[in-house]
Design a protein around this nucleic acid. Structure first.
Lengths: 122, 122
DNA sequence: CTGAATCCCATGGGATACTG
DNA sequence: CAGTATCCCATGGGATTCAG
């Protein structure tokens, strides 16, 4: 459990995994598709993922050079689990937001049930 | 997607969520059940989770004081998604470890297939 | 285009001590 | 017991620059 967190706990890892669907993407594609990520973080994240066998790096000796990254079967299996979280987020971030707003407005103590705010969507 | 990560991306949040099963736990229980967490981090994490309606805090005016934390329905729905990850970790951390070992030993470039190392378990 | 290397600062988070 | 407050350092990570 602790191990998965040292792997997933890093947000960039999750973003790369979820961005990399079933298709292979180039370095520059990933850089553009993940808003806010820096070259440094993308490179480090890709290396770590390749090291763990979650994705493979394919370099083509062309001009200009082209490098593609693609999830392995192992990586895709992790992606599925990650997608569960994404779906949860999509379905419940509204409830979370309203709970937060209520909690902040009322102050600590009385935020018991925000009109179904604490009930999951899915 | 980015929002879920600012919530899940923090390892302590995930550990608290997964530790808090269907039962309510006291502050000291959580502190003991989550190896490595500090008082500070536990407190901050609990506050954030309560704020978002993922758990409720129940204080009993006794001596000595007792405070229990329990997941809300919303929190439990998130926990299910988190458990998917935990199961993935349990089933595949071996494959990840062998991939990593192979990658480190061989050096970059040739770690193609570690005897099924890149194939998911579940 | 795909990186590697360096600089440097913000913050995450541990240790410790104090309070209700 | 259940926190809160403070100190303080390690690291995460952005910006920038250089290289193949």
């Amino acid at each position: 459990m602790r191990e998965v967190l040292d792997r997933i706990g890093d947000k960039w890892t999750v973003l790369v995994i979820s961005t990399l669907g079933d298709r292979a993407l180039r370095y520059s594609d990933l850089l553009a598709s993940i808003p806010g990520i820096s070259q440094r973080m993308l490179t480090l994240t890709l290396k770590a993922l390749e090291r763990d066998g979650l994705l493979v790096r394919q370099a083509y000796a062309e001009m200009p050079p082209r490098v593609e990254y693609e999830l392995t079967d192992l990586g895709r299996s992790l992606q599925e689990a990650v997608l569960q979280l994404a779906q949860w987020a999509a379905g419940n971030h509204g409830a979370v937001a309203s709970n937060r707003a209520l909690h902040d407005r009322i102050g600590v103590g009385r935020a018991k049930s925000a009109a179904g705010g604490s009930r999951p969507a899915e």
